[in-house]
Structure formats: structure tokens, C-alpha cells
């Protein structure tokens, strides 16, 4: 085969090369075809939802006839567009109020919580004090503790001891104290700093608080942003927490609760539900497009722990 090619004319050789190259490329092309097909499949639910959110639920017969989603001629790829579902969402369901409540409840846990987590992370990573490793181990072990154990007692605690039911306080106050998981991930970052960092600052007469605030925090900005973004997404999507504590008070509901308040049984208003889903997903999509690197870094970081 080798000699055959070298013996052939340049034109023929080129032809054979091309053929071989194609043959070598074939598995790669097949891979691309499969992967792109899968990716489209993964996007179909979103496209289906987006399309339905602009559809009519029922046929409209007056004037120009329009088919609703239940009609056999309804085509999800091509149909008459209406904005009624979105309008209804804002007029009949307090979707804007839900969004504002969500933002209001998350501000303190987001910023104060990440800050207090970073404080603890710094101490566990860079300072030496008696009992440090034991305390760290206890906190680490609770990350693995299934949340369901403390669900009922926490509810009793907030209801009977603190009298916080039907207020957003159970959603706000605990978050301000930081979380062990966030602390653990920020600590990993602090561990990577060189030892000379603090020594140089101490020679300049800086105290620990100053070092943390003016050197350690600015240097760890990427990991802090990652944690703020991940916390934002976690709180934004939380459903069980708000359901337990503010679920029965209409004006305190978060966006996820308002969304869930759309009745989904009987004559299911799928177009309205899809409009709600689209609205609820928009902030997530914007954040993801703007900062997708932080999202993916976060998951890989949390995965390679231990």
C-alpha cells in the first residue's frame, strides 16, 4: 500500500490522501452528529415551552379563526402568537411581587453569608488556634448530614421558640451566619496562598483583621464571586424553604411560590404555565450567559473535594 501510493502520480496520490483523511475523520464526524443531535434534544423542552407560552389555550372562533393547543391542527413549531399569557401572569398573578420578595429575602444571606463564610474559611486555612481541626471536622461532617433530619425540628424552633412563622425571617437570618459548604470551598482557595503573604503584612504592622479584609479578600475575589453566584441560584430556585415559612401568606410569596400557585389540574392552562416557567427561567439564563465560567468552576471545585 505504501509503495503503491508513492509510485502513483501526484494527482492520484492526492485523491487517495483525501479519501484516507475522510476515512480517518469519519468517527469524528459521527461523534459530532450524535452530540449535536443530543444537544438539540436537550434544548427541545425549553423551545417547546417558549413556543407554547405564546400560544392560545382554546380555539378562537370570532374573526380570524385561531387554533388552541388542544386542537389537532395545532403546530408547536408554527402557530398564531399571543402575549395574553404573559399579560395574565402580571395582572392576575403577582409575579413581579414574587420576584421582588425573592430578591429582598436573598440580599442579606447572599452577601453577609458569603462574608461570614469567608471569615471562617480564612481562620481555618491560615490561623493556628487550639481546637481548630476538631471544629473544622465537625462542620465538615455536617455537610453530609441529610437536611431532612432537621426539617421538622427547625420548623418547631422557628414557630415555637422564635415565633417567626409567616415571616421571611427563617429564610433570611440563618443564611447570614454562612454555610459550612461555602466555607469549605473558600478555604480550599485560601490554602493555596503562599506563607510569606501574612509575614510581609505583619512586618508592616498589619493586624489579622486588616490582612483578611485588605489582602486575603481582594485576592480571593474569583472564588467569592463564584460562591455569590451559586448562592444566588440556590436561593432563587429554593422551593421547600419558602413553602414552609411563607407559603400561606400570599403577599410574602417568592417567585417560585407564585409560579406554583398557577392551578395545574383540571383544565390545565399549559400556555400560562409555560409563560410562568419562561419568566422564572429568564434571570437564571441571563446569569448563566454572563457568568457561565463561575457556574462550571463551582461544580468542578465541589466535585474534586476530599
Amino acid at each position: 500500500m505504501q509503495t503503491e501510493i508513492s509510485a502513483a502520480t501526484p494527482a492520484a496520490r492526492q485523491k487517495v490522501d483525501k479519501k484516507q483523511r475522510f476515512k480517518r475523520m469519519l468517527p469524528k464526524i459521527a461523534l459530532y452528529v450524535i452530540l449535536i443531535f443530543l444537544a438539540i434534544l436537550w434544548l427541545v423542552p425549553f423551545l417547546f415551552a417558549l413556543s407554547t407560552s405564546f400560544a392560545y389555550q382554546f380555539n378562537v372562533n370570532g374573526g380570524e379563526p385561531v387554533v388552541g393547543i388542544y386542537h389537532k391542527d395545532y403546530n408547536w413549531l408554527w402557530h398564531t402568537v399571543t402575549f395574553d399569557n404573559y399579560a395574565k401572569l402580571f395582572s392576575e398573578y403577582n409575579i413581579l411581587g414574587g420576584f421582588l420578595n425573592t430578591i429582598l429575602y436573598m440580599l442579606a444571606p447572599l452577601f453577609v453569608g458569603v462574608f461570614t463564610s469567608a471569615m471562617a474559611a480564612y481562620a481555618f486555612a491560615r490561623l493556628r488556634f487550639p481546637g481548630r481541626d476538631a471544629i473544622f471536622f465537625v462542620l465538615l461532617a455536617t455537610i453530609l448530614l441529610p437536611g431532612v433530619i432537621t426539617m421538622i425540628p427547625s420548623y418547631i424552633l422557628f414557630a415555637n421558640f422564635y415565633h417567626w412563622t409567616n415571616t421571611p425571617l427563617p429564610l433570611i437570618i440563618p443564611g447570614c451566619f454562612g454555610s459550612a459548604m461555602t466555607m469549605f470551598l473558600i478555604r480550599q482557595y485560601f490554602l493555596g496562598f503562599p506563607k510569606e503573604l501574612e509575614e510581609a503584612a505583619q512586618i508592616d504592622g498589619m493586624g489579622w483583621w486588616g490582612i483578611f479584609l485588605r489582602i486575603a479578600l481582594p485576592l480571593s475575589l474569583p472564588v467569592l464571586i463564584t460562591q455569590v453566584i451559586l448562592s444566588f441560584n440556590g436561593i432563587y430556585n429554593d422551593y421547600l424553604g419558602p413553602l414552609l415559612y411563607v407559603g400561606t401568606v400570599t403577599e410574602l410569596r417568592t417567585l417560585q411560590l407564585v409560579l406554583k400557585s398557577i392551578p395545574t389540574i383540571g383544565n390545565t392552562p399549559y400556555p400560562l404555565m409555560m409563560a410562568g416557567a419562561v419568566i422564572a427561567l429568564i434571570p437564571t439564563f441571563i446569569l448563566y450567559c454572563a457568568a457561565q465560567k463561575f457556574f462550571t468552576e463551582g461544580i468542578v471545585l465541589s466535585g474534586i473535594k476530599e
Binding site: N237, Q256, L259, K260, T264, T268, Y270, M274, G276, A280
Partner: peptide, 11 residues
């Protein structure tokens, strides 16, 4: 969010 995704899959 799970609520939005579940709505979509319900449909």
C-alpha cells in the same frame, strides 16, 4: 428551578 422544569415536563 425545579418548579419551572416540572411545569415544562408536565406539558
Amino acid at each position: 428551578g425545579s418548579v419551572a422544569l416540572t411545569f415544562i415536563w408536565q406539558w
